[in-house]
Amino acid sequence: MSIQHFRVALIPFFAAFCLPVFAHPETLVKVKDAEDQLGARVGYIELDLNSGKILESFRPEERFPMMSTFKVLLCGAVLSRVDAGQEQLGRRIHYSQNDLVEYSPVTEKHLTDGMTVRELCSAAITMSDNTAANLLLTTIGGPKELTAFLHNMGDHVTRLDRWEPELNEAIPNDERDTTMPAAMATTLRKLLTGELLTLASRQQLIDWMEADKVAGPLLRSALPAGWFIADKSGAGERGSRGIIAALGPDGKPSRIVVIYTTGSQATMDERNRQIAEIGASLIKHW
C-alpha cells in the first residue's frame, strides 16, 4: 500500500482519535458579512469528516447552483462504474471539434489522439474542462443518470439537468442544476469515506481534487503551510461562485467545507476574496 493510499485508508482512524471539535460562531459572522459585502445569498456548511456531524452552517438547506462543483460527483459516478466493471479508466475516447464547448483548455489539445477516461476526469476536476465533463456525462448516460446515481446514494436534493455550459445559467428560483450545502457536503463525505467506492477509487477521487489547479484564489489562499486540501470550485452566471473541499491540518483532511453564493453584482475577484476570507476565519478558529 502506498503512503497516499495509507493516508486515505486511515482518515477515519486518525479522526477518531482527534480531540473533540467545537464550532466557532466567528466564522458564521464572516459568512454573514460576506453576504453584506456581496449583496447576495451565501450558503455555508462545515462537517466533521469522521462523524458527519454538522459543526457550523448557514442557509444549509437553500438551493444554490452547483456550477462546476458537480464534476466531482460526476467522476465519482464514473469511478463507481469502474468498480462495477462497467468502465475502464484506460479506455480512450475520441471526439471532434464539434464536441468542444466553451472553456476546454485540455480537451482542445487532444482532438487528434483523444483522451482516456482517467485523463478526462483529471481534466474535468483539476482544470474544470467543460468538454471533458460533457464527454464523461455521455459515458454514464447524461445528466439524468448522474441525478439517479445521487438518488441511489441517498441524495434526493442534488440534481443535474443540463450539460456544460448551460448548467451554469443560475436563474433565480430555478431548481435545475442545483444542490443544497448540506446535501453536497453529505454526498461528498460519502464519496470520500464511505463504502460506495473502493479504496482505490476513493484515493483516485481525492487525488484529482488535491491536484486542483484553478481554485488557488479561494480556500487555498488562506491555508497555512502543512495543511491538506482537496477541492473543486465552480463559477456561473449572475454572480455565482462555489467551492467544495476536504481539508485539515497535519497533512490530512478532517472536515468537509461547502460554500456557495449566487445573485451578486460583485466582480469575480471580490467573490473570490470573500470566500478566501471565510476560509481564513475557519482556519483561525479551527
Rank of each mutant, 00 (worst) to 15 (best):
Pro224Asn: 01
Gln86Phe: 15
Ser281Asn: 14
Ser68Gln: 01
Glu195Phe: 00
Asp33Gln: 05
Tyr260Gly: 00
Tyr95Gln: 15
Gly114Asn: 02
Gln274Asp: 06
Lys232Ile: 15
Ala123Ser: 00
Lys252Trp: 00
Leu49Tyr: 13
Asp48Lys: 13
His24Thr: 11
Leu191Ile: 14
Gly263Trp: 08
Ser233Leu: 03
Pro217Gln: 05
Ala222Glu: 15
Thr139His: 00
Asp177Leu: 09
Leu111Asp: 01
Thr193Met: 01
Thr261Leu: 04
Gly248Ser: 04
Lys32Glu: 00
Ser254Cys: 15
Asp99Ile: 07
Thr69Val: 02
Pro249Glu: 10
Leu74Ile: 11
Thr116Gly: 10
Glu119Phe: 11
Phe149Ser: 11
Met153Asn: 05
Gly216Val: 01
Ala245Arg: 08
Asn152Glu: 04
Thr27Asn: 08
Asp113Lys: 07
Ala148Phe: 14
Asp48Phe: 00
Ile54Gly: 05
Gly234Ser: 08
Ala148Tyr: 03
Gly142Ile: 00
His156Ile: 05
Lys190Trp: 15
Lys213Arg: 05
Ala170Ile: 01
Gly226Cys: 14
Lys71Trp: 11
Asn98Asp: 08
Pro224Ile: 00
Gln203Lys: 13
His110Val: 15
Gly234His: 02
Gly154Gln: 03
Arg202Met: 03
Gly194Asp: 05
Ala84Asn: 15
Gln274Asn: 08
Gly248Phe: 06
Pro65Asn: 08
Met153Ser: 12
Gly52Phe: 01
Gly216Arg: 06
Ala225Cys: 03
Glu26Ile: 01
Ala230Gln: 03
Val72Pro: 09
Glu62Gln: 13
Pro217Ala: 06
Asp113Phe: 09
Val257Ala: 00
Val117Lys: 07
Ala148Cys: 09
Gly279Met: 08
Arg202Gln: 08
Leu150Val: 01
Ala245Glu: 14
Asp36Lys: 06
Lys71Cys: 04
Lys144Ile: 10
Tyr44Pro: 13
Met66Glu: 07
Lys284Thr: 04
Ser201Lys: 06
Leu188Asn: 13
Met115His: 00
Leu74Met: 14
Pro105Met: 15
Ser96Phe: 09
Val29Trp: 15
Glu195Met: 08
Met66Tyr: 05
Ser51Tyr: 09
Asp212His: 13
Asn98Pro: 03
Tyr44Phe: 13
Gly154Leu: 04
Asp207Glu: 05
Asp231Gly: 06
Pro65Trp: 09
Pro181Cys: 00
Asn272Val: 11
Leu199Ala: 05
Tyr44Met: 14
Asp174Glu: 09
Leu100His: 15
Ile125Tyr: 15
Ala77Ile: 05
Gly154Phe: 00
Ile278Leu: 12
Glu26Pro: 06
Leu247Tyr: 08
Arg202Ser: 06
Ile229Lys: 06
Val117Arg: 03
Arg271Asp: 14
Val42Gln: 00
Asp161Phe: 03
Lys190Met: 15
Ile140Asn: 14
Leu218Thr: 04
Thr193Gln: 06
